[in-house]
Write a protein that binds this DNA or RNA. Structure first.
Lengths: 218, 218
DNA sequence: AGTTCAAAAATTATCTATAATTTTGTGGCG
DNA sequence: CGCCACAAAATTATAGATAATTTTTGAACT
């Protein structure tokens, strides 16, 4: 599903590397050697370099000239930053999307929420969660905005998958339902406010108990 | 100033191309042939391709697989979209920056406003305008947010330089002064609201009289 | 023993040349 | 007039080589 056949090789490599980084298979701070990656994919270094540029634009790796690229680390501040940006942009998207929301779309969104209820692992839940957000935001018809939100969502998924949270169900799904209720009642501003708090909360909760440490390895 | 000596060749090429696109030297829709560009810069196609990926991430070009890249066009809807995104993100940045704003910074911002008053061409005014926004937003200390705002500002500059506006001074500078007054009085929310309207207005005004046409060439 | 400096190794960044795939343009033919 | 085949051009990808820079290694010296 993720790797389309008509994509360019650089795009395919970047998608696979992105999946690994998001899933935590490659730790933050680890260096990605271009020859090493090229050899693994049976490719030359040229498409690998292009893949690096794509990942850099997404914020998944950082590149220092003549020093190669390394997996981006994430501090508490960066997690908060991504959450705040998501909140600001998703609220904008929701306000613009609201007039175009149909009953059918809201029903689909409710189904996505139920799918989140039934999820037994983080991956499945995250899939349903992303689906919910996309369903209610896409009708804004602002491609640049949606792309930006999607990249931020990807960054959020990194934090989610790093294994610090066991209670990802209850509060989130309650928020989802409150958003849908408000939207059905035509109370767009209420929905936007709940959405803002909902997204911000994702970036704030876990560090009350456990602290996320960046990888020591260089 | 724009091209640092220790930058990689791909970065230098992308910066020069970005300047041309922003200045309107290359029209929207025009195809950028990699060999053509490579020859002009006396480089090979490898760094040129990497430069394309950077420009793509900034939204200055669009890339279609196996078809090369072309300068991104901008429709009325896209201009609005960029303005709305800027408004949302700059408001967020201002709220976070407000507690760290010092009198010295606000004085600098006022000086930037005065520089905008004295500007005789669009380029000089845009430089002062960007300086003003950066001064009051940078203290938020959120690098990802600031980078996103900067890219959106670049996109705004494209519209500004496309020659549709002769009256770029009066209302903007009035807004700048209102923002500074509110900030000095500690009225952050007021400042944020003026900033939001101010940025949104940039994307709304000109099309009441003259309409921007995309390049006809395909 | 620890620090500093220099040589060596590894890696990045680039170029040249070439092949493969795809798009595009042209011309003929039904 | 439309459609198919063929040719030309451009993008995408590979391979090997070279220059420049960073990192590592090792040895001399205090």
């Amino acid at each position: 599903m993720t790797t389309a056949k008509d994509d360019t090789l650089a795009v395919r490599i970047s998608k696979i590397l992105a999946e690994r980084i998001i899933a935590g298979a490659i730790a933050p701070g680890v260096r990605l050697g271009q020859d090493h990656i090229a050899e693994e994919f049976g490719a030359s270094h040229v498409p690998v370099r292009e893949a690096f540029r794509r990942l850099e634009a997404q914020g998944l790796v950082v590149s220092e000239p003549r020093r190669g690229v390394r997996v981006a680390g994430f501090t508490v501040e960066e997690v908060r930053e991504v959450a705040e940006m998501r909140a600001a942009l998703e609220v904008l998207a929701l306000r613009q999307a609201a007039p175009h929301l149909t009953k059918a779309l809201l029903d689909q969104a409710e189904e996505a929420t139920r799918a989140g209820d039934k999820a037994t692992d983080v991956q499945a839940w995250e899939l349903a969660n992303r689906h919910f957000h996309r369903l209610i935001l896409t009708p804004c018809a602002m491609p640049r905005l949606l792309k930006a939100i999607d990249d931020l969502h990807t960054a959020s998924a990194r934090f989610l998958f790093s294994g610090w949270r066991a209670e990802w169900e209850a509060p989130t799904d309650r928020d989802h339902r409150a958003i849908l209720t408000a939207l059905r009642a035509g109370q767009v501003e209420t929905a936007a406010q709940v959405l803002a708090r909902h997204v911000q909360a994702i970036g704030q909760k876990p560090w009350q108990t456990s602290r996320l440490k960046p990888a020591a390895r260089g």
